[in-house]
Design a binder for these strands. Structure first.
Length: 302
DNA sequence: GAGTTTGAAACT
DNA sequence: CAGTTTCAAACTC
């Protein structure tokens, strides 16, 4: 699919993912944009897309519906694992994505958790006890506890292991900004703003931000720099049930932005990968919590 | 670029 | 809750 173009080439810059939905109208979690809490924009190749500001009411309603079914549906899939259960191996979590884990775990049967079909692997995190995968060989840490982290995995099928290490290295090496794993989620959803955001984060704003113009024009105006930053952050709607997450977020060295989500809930946007725990991002791991006033236009119509 | 594989999400 | 279907991304050719 064409869409991953940004990954292959520009990678670096921008790389805000865009979808290619044909049947979901971008109103289901199948849609990466929708799932990430962002509106579809120009680079998307979707068909019959409803995930646009114009259909804000539909989007909000759908989100609500999905959330009612699963309150964590829009929660980050990967959480930093502060309580080192997984780090038993001793490698310092500070240098490996293994310090985070996929919240729900994967259910891989054939990929051995070695391909991006695996959500854990895709996110650059190891599998955990939450996973029900079979034949797990996740390069970032296996379900059975072996953690990849430094590439000192234990042996097994050498070839496999080798491959595994290579792939992991690939991830680690990504210079850029946001390797898939930490998709840049973000925030293109109507987040209120005006003034938020830190200009310092405005590195790369080409690609996505340039084309993102369509999205944020509801009066709320993100400055370009803002958007670029958004492109590298993650927005997270916080529900009551997620306080624990909040704590995690707050405690972890990530950039947090307290905002208001489309459904009137607080929203946290933060860099998932702190420089400490991820080799992919190294911008200092500072923590910021910003307050963003509620945005009027976000109010769902009734 | 077309076709296949895969597993999450949605549905029954 | 388990089994099945749908879907779109990941992958292969």
């Amino acid at each position: 699919m064409g869409r991953r173009k940004s990954e292959q080439a520009g990678e670096g810059e921008s790389s805000c993912k865009r979808c290619n939905c044909k049947k979901s109208k971008c109103l289901k979690l199948y849609c990466e944009c929708f799932a990430a809490g962002v509106y579809c924009i120009e680079p998307c190749s979707c068909v019959d897309c409803f995930n646009k500001p114009i259909h804000e009411d539909v989007v909000l309603a759908t989100r609500k519906q999905i959330e009612s079914r699963n309150p964590l549906a829009f929660a980050p899939k990967v959480i930093r694992n502060s309580d080192s259960i997984m780090e038993a191996t001793g490698d310092d979590a500070s240098k490996t994505p293994a310090s985070a884990r996929h919240k729900r775990g994967c259910n891989c049967k054939k990929s051995n958790c070695l391909k991006k079909y695996c959500e854990c692997y895709q996110s650059g995190v190891g599998c955990s006890i939450n996973c029900r995968c079979e034949g797990c060989k996740n390069a970032f840490g296996r379900k059975d506890g072996s953690s990849f982290a430094g590439l000192d995995i234990e042996q097994d099928e050498e070839n496999e292991t080798e491959k595994t290490q290579q792939t992991a290295e690939l991830f680690n090496r990504a210079p850029l900004s946001t390797p898939m794993p930490l998709r840049q989620p973000l925030a293109q959803l109507p987040i209120s703003s005006n003034n938020i955001l830190l200009p310092q984060q405005s590195h790369h704003l080409h690609g996505a931000s340039g084309s993102s113009s369509g999205i944020y024009n509801k009066g709320q105006s993100f400055r370009k720099e803002d958007m670029s930053m958004l492109c590298h952050s993650r927005i997270e709607t916080i529900t009551e049930e997620r306080e624990e997450d909040i704590e995690n977020l707050i405690q972890s060295p990530i950039t947090n932005i307290n905002a208001v989500s489309p459904n009137s809930r607080r929203v946290y946007m933060h860099h998932l990968d702190s420089s400490e725990s991820s080799p992919w991002r190294r911008n200092g791991g500072r923590k910021l919590i910003l307050s963003i006033p509620t945005f009027p236009s976000l109010t769902p119509h009734h």
